[in-house]
Write a protein that binds this DNA or RNA. Sequence first.
DNA 1: CATATAGTTCGATCTATAGCGAAGCATAAA
DNA 2: TTTATGCTTCGCTATAGATCGAACTATATG
Lengths: 233, 233
Amino acid sequence: MRDGPDIARVAALIGDPARANMLSALMSGKALTATELAQEAGVQAQTASSHLSRLVEGGLVAPRKSGRHKYFSLAGEEVAEVLEALMGLAAGKGHLRTRTGPKDQAMRQARVCYNHLAGEMGVQMFRSLQAQGVLVGPDLQVSPRGRQFLKALGLDLASLPKSRAPMCKECLDWSARQSHLAGRLGRALLSHFIEEGWARRQADSRVVQFTPQGLHLFEKHFGKAVRPQEDFA
Amino acid sequence: MRDGPDIARVAALIGDPARANMLSALMSGKALTATELAQEAGVQAQTASSHLSRLVEGGLVAPRKSGRHKYFSLAGEEVAEVLEALMGLAAGKGHLRTRTGPKDQAMRQARVCYNHLAGEMGVQMFRSLQAQGVLVGPDLQVSPRGRQFLKALGLDLASLPKSRAPMCKECLDWSARQSHLAGRLGRALLSHFIEEGWARRQADSRVVQFTPQGLHLFEKHFGKAVRPQEDFA
DNA sequence: CATATAGTTCGATCTATAGCGAAGCATAAA
DNA sequence: TTTATGCTTCGCTATAGATCGAACTATATG
C-alpha cells in the first residue's frame, strides 16, 4: 500500500466539472484566456480564477501573461494523453455527456488532440506511416526513407524547432481506440496540413475539417481511413 | 463546448483518496475482498462498502461473490491503463506520496500492472519482442515466427482461453515512460514466468521478484534491461 | 440450533470546497 | 488624468459527500 505516485491529487483536480470543462476546451491546443475558460466552464470569472490557479499549481496547466490578458494552455503532451485516456474510458462506459450528434461524427473522423491530428484519420495516418516504413522500430524513429517521404510532402525535419520533447510519440485515441501520432512530428504534420490548405480548424470546437482536395491528397499519401466496426450501440 | 465524453465523472471517482488507494491496490491484478480493500484504503468497512458500490456503478470495478466474501477487481485493462497514465503524470509532476525507498526501485525494475509485466523489464521485453519480429505491424500481430518463439518458451497460443479481448495491446509505463505489453499475451507471459519459477510476486505489493536463474533466462530471451537515463532528480 | 464473520443500510455529523457578490489591483485605452 | 477591461482576493453561504456508530442481512462454522 501507499506505493507509487499520488493519483488522487491529479484525478481530483480533473474531477471537478468546471475544471474538466476547461481542460477539455484546452484540448483544442489553443491557449485561452481566463474569461474564455470561465465561459467554457459556465462559471463566473472569480470562480474560474480560483480553479485556474489550482490547475497551475497542480502542474496541469501553464499560464502565460500577455498584456492584461492571461492565457492558459495544457502543461504538456502528457496531460493531453491522460485526458484522452480518460475520455476513452468514459466513452466506453457510456458516460457521454451529450447524445450523439452530427458534430460527434465529425469529431470521430478528424479532430485535434492538443496539437496533433486524432480520430480515424489520425489513426490511419499513423498506421500508414509505419506500414510505409517512415516510422520504424518500437521507439518510432524516422528512417532515412522517412525523411525523404516527409520532404516530398514539403516538411523538412531539420527546420523543426529543436526541443527535448520526443519527435514521435503514441497517443491513444478515445474514439478509435487505437494509437495515433503525437510528439513534435505529429504537431508539425497537422500544422502543415493546415498551412497547405488541406484542412482547417473549426472555429469553436476540436473538429478538423478537410477540404475535398485536401482529403484527396491525404488519401493519396496515407490511404483511406476505414471506419472500424462498432461493436456497441 | 460540452464535446465528448464526461471526463469529470470518472476522474472524480478516482479522485477520492480512499478510492484511489483501493484502485491502486487492485493494480496488483489480484481480486480483493471488501474488507481487504477497506484496510488498504484506511477506512471502516461501511465507508469502503459505499465507495465500492460507487466504483462498481461507475464501471471501474467488477464485483464477484464467493460465499460470504465479495471480491472486487478492476473492470478491465482500460481502467488499468488510465491508472498507469495518471501515475505517470503524477510522478512526472513530483507528486509522490512517499519518499523514494528501496521498494520503489524494485517497482521501477519489475512490477505487475493489473495482470502483465511492467517496469524496465516489461519495457525491455516489449522492445525485444518487436525487434525479434515476434510482434509485427502497428497492430502488434503475432507473426508465424513469433508463434515458434513463444512455443520455444513453452507457451502455446492456441491453449490460451478465447476471448474478445485483444491479444496484444500497448500500455504506457509510468516509471519508464515507454510502452510495455498488455493484452492476453502480456498476461500469459507474466503467469508463465511465475509458473516456471522465473519470478514470483511479492506478498503485499506489486513488485515482481526475479530469481537469479529466472533473470538469466529472461536476459537470454529478451536481452538485458538497460536503465534509461533519468533527466530529473 | 447458536455464534462468528462479511457485507450492507440507515442516520447523523462534519469537513472541504464550489459558488458568487463585492471590493481591490493591474494594464490598456481615451 | 479618467474610464474600461481583465483578473484576483476576500468573505460568506450552501451543498455534496466522506466518515463512522449502530442496527440489520447473509453466509459459514461448531
